[in-house]
Nucleic acid binder design. Structure first.
Lengths: 230, 230
DNA sequence: AGGCACTCGTGCACACGTTCACAAAGCCAG
DNA sequence: CTGGCTTTGTGAACGTGTGCACGAGTGCCT
């Protein structure tokens, strides 16, 4: 059999960095770079070189000592591990401000996540066209999920409607959800949920600003010493 | 002096959960709930009760044993700790799909982060009105930041323009940045950067989907056992 | 062929975060 | 006032993630 089949579990922290490496490697490939060292990649990703090596070691030993990593091969391996060897169509629930922006944003399809459909509960919105996709009624959700083989749903509704949206997605057969609504979704254990909450992000920044202002006499004034920040 | 002035450092993990508690407590207050236990709050936030207690203990001892926490007081304390006692105006760079959605989304101002301005480098977009705010040219950024006392900038440009946007924000005097562009920003150490990357989130979901499909014979079929997921 | 410079892969120690478990503290009933 | 019930606050154990430091390969140059 193959040396080791994919039974190794990759730590969450690593999984969340692999997409960053992948994007950078893609850019490097476009620029004609064929080989890259852990230190070079680390610099571009804004992380520690040892971390890069450890992260990549979970995929297997795909580097060459004394040389570095072959960019194209590494791209292939990361894509394979992340399941990006084929497209994952997504369905968007909610055609408000955010849903429209998401549907209109081309970057989705380009990166392997084509919008299979966008639905809303409001009849006034149904029928309008967003980014080449016609808004359909939420009752058509099961059909869209089934015929387009959708596994990933995006909740882009107001908070009050989010749990209902999630329930419908789950019932329709979706197994992963990306939630933009500011609520904690309650779903069966087997469903993977990730949350993006703008208010939370801003409040975290607010905490640091407040701390800066309220506390230290040694208010950080030193302008320089650049550091890459994820 | 006061028992202990705010010189305790709150762990990052806790800071990122406080906004969630805050929102839930606000909702509870609106429903007339006056007191809540760590277990009740934990349930609503989808976390462990011990974690809630430890998180809240970093703010001080604001609970009452045998009873729980007084909702209104806790709201006040969390808001104070997060620096939400006053508004933090934000400036948005980039009036594309995302920038428009952010400006149009009312929830920003409501939560204490009014949009002080939105700028773009494209003259064609300057002058259009989004969510009550007129788009101005990016050259006006320093003026907006100065006159409106803006500390927080939002980068909503395409990837290629993001570093320039960040540079301009920093030069204008912004000290925190929320970055939606899929690039690692290089900024002075003193600047706090948080990143929101949709492609990364989707790719993480893809990883789990791929794992589900490729691996286990014991494909998780058990429909129930609800769990709250952040 | 041998030595040297370079870079990966990883064992190990440390830091951070989570969870358990329990004493301390408050409330209430009788 | 006492005893019992509830819930907080936190010490301690555990698990996960990070970063150093170094052995082990690899390629290049002489």
């Amino acid at each position: 059999m193959a040396p080791d089949r994919n039974r190794r579990r990759i730590p969450d922290a690593t999984v969340s960095r692999l997409p960053v490496y992948l994007r950078i490697l893609g850019e490097q490939a476009d620029e004609g770079v064929e080989s890259i060292s852990s230190e070079g990649l680390a610099e571009l990703a804004g992380v520690n070189a040892a971390k890069v090596r450890k992260d990549l070691s979970y995929l297997g030993s795909y580097g060459t000592r004394g040389v570095g990593y072959e960019v194209a091969y590494l791209v292939y391996q990361i894509r394979r591990e992340l399941g990006l060897t084929h497209d994952w169509p997504v369905v968007i629930v909610g055609a408000g401000n955010l849903g429209q922006a998401l549907a209109g944003y081309g970057g989705f399809g380009e990166r392997g996540f084509p919008v299979a459909g966008i639905v809303d509960i409001d009849d006034a919105k149904v029928g309008t066209v967003l980014g080449g996709t016609r808004v359909r009624h939420i009752d058509e959700l099961p059909q869209i999920v089934a015929t387009r083989r959708v596994n990933i749903g995006v909740v882009a509704t107001p908070g009050a409607a989010a749990q209902d949206a999630a329930d419908r997605l789950v019932k329709a057969g979706v197994t992963s959800i990306l939630n933009f609504a500011p609520v904690v979704l309650s779903v069966p254990r087997a469903i993977e949920v990730r949350k993006v909450d703008l208010a939370v992000e801003l409040q975290i920044l607010s905490y640091h600003e407040q701390r800066r202002a309220g506390g230290a006499i040694h208010a950080v004034q030193n302008g320089n010493g650049r550091s890459a920040s994820a």
